[in-house]
Each structure stands twice: as structure tokens, then as C-alpha cells.
Design a protein around this nucleic acid. Structure first.
Lengths: 229, 229
DNA sequence: GTCTATAGATTGATAGAC
DNA sequence: GTCTATCAATCTATAGAC
């Protein structure tokens, strides 16, 4: 098994360290923003000397973009394949459920993405203009078909997507406010299920759809691993 | 009229300069966060030497808190006096309308507040725990009474408030994303009215309330004055 | 009240020994 | 691949002339 080849498991160290750095970077960037985060702070959190960060990612900008890239990959997977033959209520409910689940399992990813957009999206303008716009177009096409065939109220599909994004991401982005106002330390499983049910109830009913039976989600992600599973 | 008193219009200069600085500070803090914003950048935007900022506000922290204080004052005025004798549909519609209006007239205030909370609300923890919690308690009491008397669906009032906050603030905080995806340069009056109508339709109907007739808002705020009217 | 000059700490990034 | 030492630039804040 263990031959005498020079490099045992090549690139394994690099891979491991890059993950450690990315994880530390995500936390610092959420706490202080891109400009407000020092490479030293990331290094301290990662338990590595500052020079190693530059060795692996060359500069702060590259590191930030690497973190954002991971997040956009996550976002792209939501509601991937739907068609106008699907049931509107089922699809919308699943959309809401998945997004609430993501807010619970990857709160920091959601927060960092939100901060980037609030500040004017200087690093992901192009992503929004291309990939994200394509994603929205493909979904609105299906929603429009549902409306035309009288399956749901004539709600502008783009704004319906905004509504689902905003209500679900709110529980990740405004976590501090939500938990403080509810006098709670952290979310629990039951909270997530109740939030999903409540949002689904209002939005589906508000769109003129039948509110479906409660469905136990098949996959339940664990909280806060965020970057690097 | 103009007597020979030493100080003509005392404190007038101070008042004017503080406003200029606050306005410049708000813009910079939104763009780069608290840590990422330099006093020099604020001074440049205000057209004043850096030392003057310290003369008026002593340090960066005080300046930041002054900006936040202005914003929390704005937030406190929303939905100030309601009672369980009021009509639920009317109150909720007015709540939604006012918040959309605020997103349009004070987008930067909304953004800065959002960033502060996303980063863990380090400067306004106490405000949330006291004033904001009181505000929420007083509203949920009324909502609960409506539910108990069968006037609306049994939606958890706290989460209903979160829903209205998130959906309305989204148009200010995620302005860049919203406008890019809609392929628009900026919001116009008609957008704001349509957004209000759409949100009101879904949320009221979703809560089991009658969707009211369209009402022309009495007061229309102009966009982007933000800090300092 | 205004503004220049500057102190003292921290920043992003690199060189070079190990 | 790791890490110390260091540079030039920038940071917050202040002292003090006007």
C-alpha cells in the first residue's frame, strides 16, 4: 500500500488548509465586511501565520471571491428542475422549505451574500446579471404558465420570488434580531418546521392555492457547518 | 433686528456641519461597514478636513452611534397607535404601505440598519432588547386579540411582523439585486404602488382577510434624502 | 471653529531563512 | 510548505497654529 513515492497524497495538505482558511474567512467577513476584515484576523482564527493566507490565496480579494463562489454554488442548486406540468402548490412549498432549510444550515453564507448585495454587490454584479437572471427567467416562465391557465392568482412571478427569498433569508440574516425578540438563544428543529409551515400557509393561500398537508422533510441539514461540510 | 451681540445665530454652524457629516457618514458606513469605513473617507465626502469630524463627534464610534440613533427614531414611528377595535385589514395594509414607503424614501437607513443586525447588532443590542421588544409586544397583543375573536387566521403575530419587515425592507436592502434582475435603473412611483398592492394582497389574503380597495396614499415621501430631510 | 502636521498603531503584502 | 521579519501605506486620534 504505502509505496516509497515521494509525495504521499499529493495536494492533501493544500486542500485541508484551504478549507480551514475559507471557513475562518467566511466568519470574519460576515462580522466585519470585506474592507473591515484584516488578513491577520483571518489568520488568527485559522490558527496560521498571516503569510500562509497569502501563500494559498495570493491576496485578500481572491480569498473573498473564493468564499463568494462557494455561496453562489449553493444558491444555484435551489429549485433546479421544475416544469409547468408540476403542481404549483407543491413546487412553491418545496421552494419555501428548501430556502428555510438553507437559512438554518448555512446562516453565514446567507449573511455574507446579503452584505455583499447591500453594499452594492461590487464583487458579484456579473453573477447577478447573468446566472441569477437566467435562473429567475426560467422560473418566472413556469409561474406565468400557471397564471395563464388559471392555476393561481395573477401575482407578478418576479416579485413572488423576491417574497420567498426575503421571508426565508430573513431568519438567517436577521437571526440576531429574531432570536432577541423571541427571547431565544438559538433556533431549534421545531422552530424551522413551524416557520416553514407558516410562510407556506400565508404565501400559498395568498396566491390563491390550496394549502397542502404538512409534509415531514426527507432531508434535514444540521446547523452552522456552513462553509466546508 | 441684527444687534451687536457677539454670537449671531448661536450653534447654527454646528448644526449645519453635523448634518453634513452625518449624511456623509451614513453613505460611507453603508458602502464599507463600520470597521471598513475610514474617517478620512467621510471627511472627503463631507468636504471637510478630517480633524473637524473628530471635533464634532470626538471619535468614529460616537459618529456611528449618532447615525444609528437617527435611524431607530425613524423605525419607532411606524404603526404607532393601534387598538384591537381597529380593522385588521386596514391596519396591516397601512403597516405594509408605510414600510414600503420607508424603503423607498430612506433606503440607506434601511441598509445600514440591516448591516448592523447581520453583523450581530454589536451597537444596538440593547435597543432591540428594550424598545424594539416593547414595540413588538404592544402590536402582537392587538393581533392576538383579532385572532381570538376570529377576525383573522391564527398566524403567530411575531412571525407576521417578521414577514412584513422582511418583504418590505427587501426592496431597500437588496435594491441592487432587485433592480438588476428587473433590468431597471431605479424605482419609480408606480413600482412602489404596485409592490405595496402585491404584498398587501398576498399577506392579507394569506391571513384570511378581505383584500381592501386600492387606496391612494395621502403622503408620498421623496426618495433618497435619507438622513436629514 | 478651521485646518495642518504628526504621532502611534495597524494594514496588505513580500522577502527570505528554515 | 511554514513562518519570522519587515516595508510602505493607511488607520484613528490629537496637538497646536491660525
Amino acid at each position: 500500500m504505502t509505496t516509497t513515492t515521494k509525495k504521499y497524497k499529493p495536494g492533501k495538505i493544500r486542500e485541508r488548509n484551504e478549507e480551514i482558511i475559507l471557513k475562518a474567512a467566511e466568519q470574519e467577513f460576515v462580522l466585519h465586511g470585506f474592507k473591515g476584515t484584516s488578513v491577520q484576523a483571518i489568520a488568527d482564527r485559522a490558527g496560521l501565520p498571516k503569510a500562509n493566507i497569502h501563500y494559498y490565496f495570493k491576496n485578500k480579494n481572491n480569498l473573498y471571491r473564493a468564499v463568494l463562489e462557494y455561496i453562489t454554488q449553493l444558491w444555484n442548486e435551489v429549485l433546479s428542475g421544475i416544469s409547468e406540468d408540476d403542481d404549483p402548490a407543491t413546487v412553491l412549498h418545496e421552494f419555501i422549505r428548501t430556502k428555510v432549510e438553507l437559512s438554518y444550515s448555512h446562516p453565514r453564507a446567507s449573511k455574507l451574500f446579503a452584505m455583499e448585495i447591500i453594499q452594492g454587490a461590487p464583487h458579484i454584479r456579473e453573477y447577478i446579471r447573468s446566472d441569477m437572471r437566467k435562473w429567475v427567467r426560467s422560473k418566472t416562465k413556469v409561474f406565468d404558465a400557471w397564471i395563464e391557465s388559471g392555476k393561481m392568482d395573477p401575482i407578478d412571478p418576479v416579485h413572488l420570488i423576491f417574497m420567498i427569498w426575503s421571508t426565508t433569508q430573513h431568519y438567517a440574516d436577521f437571526e440576531t434580531q429574531v432570536l432577541t425578540l423571541m427571547n431565544r438563544a438559538e433556533y431549534e428543529r421545531e422552530d424551522i418546521d413551524r416557520i416553514t409551515q407558516m410562510l407556506s400557509h400565508i404565501i400559498l393561500k395568498g396566491c390563491g392555492l390550496e394549502v397542502p398537508e404538512l409534509t415531514k422533510p426527507e432531508v434535514q441539514l444540521e446547523p452552522t457547518p456552513d462553509l466546508v461540510e
